[in-house]
């Protein structure tokens, strides 16, 4: 008995050590570069500080009070929400349609698979600059097309009324391929026999899509929606490069506002409050969405 217990205990401690050894590196990295910085951001949000001087004044919740009434921040939040909603509305159906086409077309459509995915391989910066010049009112192609039809110069990025929508379309251009591949992967999980059986039973391709494939793709669609929501709310690179939130905050996002507050006006305390506020908003929206999506299943 005693010997057996000791052996079990040794096995247990051995297992505990092994678990700790295997998990330690990942948890350490996450702790240092994700969790500690989040806590640090919340702490810094209580100070007024320019980032380099030693003058760091504790001001309590003043930054948070300012944040609650900061119309630029809430305007940026509204823009983020618009990006989120339109990204889902535009990217999900097109991504699904393209994936459906590629799935049915098979190997023949290999060129499409390459060309349609290219936007996803470009860095956001590259896309940002590409479109900045492509949409340039004098040399860009939109102006070129407009002139070909007898129109005048078109300045989509310089106009507060069109800038955000233009950004949203470019973001859709960039990310639709990602969801396309995501749904292709979803299709890959559906056995080919199911399609064959449906066809034998006299179903049309349309019946197959609406009544069989779509319900089976539901888990993929759900996680794609969550990914899209989180991605839209923390969006930064492309807008930063293309418009930097302008003109007059018309395309400002929470992340671009935070970056400019920190590294252009050197208000580190307030920038931390923006970042922390952003973190809270994204977490709440992500959790609520996941709860809603999972409840519908029952």
């Amino acid at each position: 008995m005693g010997i057996h217990e000791a052996a079990v205990k040794r096995r247990r401690t051995g297992e505990f050590t092994a678990i700790a050894v295997f998990l330690a590196p990942a948890l350490l990295v996450i702790g240092i570069f994700i969790i500690y910085p989040i806590i640090q951001s919340f702490i810094t949000s209580g100070y007024e500080w320019n980032g380099y001087s030693s003058a760091k004044t504790f001001i309590g919740l003043d930054n948070w009070k300012k944040l609650l009434t900061d119309s630029t921040f809430w305007g940026a939040f509204r823009n983020n929400i618009l990006v989120m909603v339109l990204s889902i509305v535009i990217q999900m159906p097109i991504g699904l349609a393209l994936a459906t086409f590629l799935n049915r077309a098979g190997k023949k459509a290999n060129i499409a698979k390459v060309i349609w995915f290219i936007p996803m391989l470009m860095s956001s910066v590259a896309i940002g600059y590409l479109f900045r010049y492509a949409l340039d009112p004098t040399t860009g192609f939109v102006t070129a097309i407009s002139k070909a039809f007898g129109g005048g110069k078109v300045d989509l990025l310089g106009n507060p009324g069109t800038v955000l929508l233009t950004c949203i379309f470019i973001i859709a251009w960039q990310f639709t391929p990602f969801y396309m591949v995501y749904y292709m992967a979803g299709y890959g999980g559906i056995s080919a026999d199911i399609h064959e059986a449906a066809m034998i039973d006299g179903a049309t391709e349309k019946d197959y899509f609406w009544n069989i494939a779509l319900p089976l793709l539901k888990p993929s669609i759900k996680s794609a929606v969550v990914l899209s929501i989180v991605g839209s709310l923390k969006y930064f690179d492309l807008v930063y490069v293309m418009t930097d939130g302008g003109p007059s905050h018309a395309s400002e996002l929470m992340a671009t506002y935070m970056y400019d507050t920190a590294f252009k006006s050197y208000q580190m305390g307030y920038a931390s409050a923006i970042a922390s506020g952003m973190f809270i908003l994204i977490s709440v929206i992500a959790i609520v969405t996941m709860k809603l999506l999972n409840r519908k299943e029952d």
Binding site: I38, T44, K234, A262, M268, A275
Partner: peptide
């Protein structure tokens, strides 16, 4: 951690 925006960690990092 997948949904943590990098901007909340940017300044501390």
């Amino acid at each position: 951690c997948m949904s943590v925006p990098i901007h909340v960690t940017l300044l501390p990092i």
